[in-house]
């Protein structure tokens, strides 16, 4: 029988990761709260269910590849990688401080971080490169690439979308954290993306539209994506910016603002009592 996701375990991990994120951001005094909290289940469903890797050998040649294209969401990735034991949890509080491996946007060199990112729109092209490299190396690895919705304004994303489809890169699985906000405001007000599913389908992608906070749907989407042959897959995940903390949710002010001490205490209380 195929592997089944342990839903309760994944939900518990997601909650713990959220707590680490708000703590880390408060400690740093700056950073991207909203977009880190919206992508938590997308990472947890991947790393704690689907992803092939060995945290003690981060560059192991048979590993799957995760490319964080929306680099500003790195607090979520750092929290997940620490939880996976790629590095120690204590290092999380060095975020954004001088000499840290946890740069304000991800930098190659930190175990588990595959690319340096931060300038939006570059990840999917790199993921395609990894996928072509895997094909040349006859390596069955899968390549995941997480993008933001505002990021889809970048033309390079659509250049890369053509490339994935043209080369039938079925080892590529894109993920969109569709939290409906970008820095300047609501995505639909700034530069509308709809109909987004149809756009990706017309570019030759298989699209799985899901609730990005439902770990069961997330895990199953990755399973389904792996079975698609001859074309790339996209997990279009509807999410809530700032998810998990009532006063961050859909408050775009927290796009690039970290919680202060008072907000942190309230946030942790909410997250801990959340069912």
């Amino acid at each position: 029988m195929a592997k089944q996701p342990d839903i309760n375990r994944l939900k518990k991990i997601a909650k713990e990761v959220r707590i680490e994120i708000v703590k880390m951001l408060n400690c740093a005094g700056s950073g991207h709260t909203g977009g880190s909290l919206s992508m938590v289940e997308l990472l947890v469903g991947l790393y704690f269910y689907k992803f092939k890797c060995d945290p003690s050998k981060p560059l192991c040649s048979t590993r799957d590849i995760f490319v964080l294209s929306k680099g500003h969401g790195c607090p979520a990735l750092y929290a997940v990688l620490a939880k996976m034991n790629f590095f120690s949890k204590e290092e999380l509080c060095t975020l954004r401080k001088i000499g840290t491996r946890l740069q304000g946007h991800p930098q190659i060199g930190l175990p588990g971080v595959e690319i340096s990112s931060g300038s939006l729109g570059q990840g999917l092209s790199i993921a395609n490169g990894f996928a072509l490299g895997a094909r040349l190396n006859k390596d069955p690895k899968r390549v995941y690439c997480l993008m933001g919705d505002g990021e889809l304004d970048e033309g390079q994303v659509w250049e890369a979308a053509l490339t994935s489809a043209h080369y039938k890169l079925d080892n590529v699985c894109g993920i969109i954290d569709y939290n409906k906000f970008q820095i300047d405001g609501r995505v639909e007000d700034i530069k509308g993306l709809e109909p987004l599913k149809a756009k990706w389908q017309s570019f030759g992608w298989e699209v799985f539209e899901i609730d990005g906070h439902n770990v069961k749907e997330v895990a199953e989407a990755y399973d389904k994506a792996e079975k698609i042959k001859g074309k790339p897959s996209m997990v279009l995940a509807h999410t809530v910016k700032g998810k998990g903390v009532s006063f961050f949710e859909n408050k775009n002010k927290y796009h690039g603002v970290a919680p202060n001490k008072e907000e942190l205490e309230k946030a942790i209380k909410e997250l801990e009592t959340e069912k």
């Binding site: 092209s125 993921a127 395609n128 490169g129 990894f130």
Partner: peptide, 14 residues
């Protein structure tokens, strides 16, 4: 732009 990114991914694959 896509070419440079794809090149980077291939390079990271050895």
């Amino acid at each position: 732009q896509d070419m440079m990114g794809t090149a980077a991914g291939l390079a990271l694959s050895g």
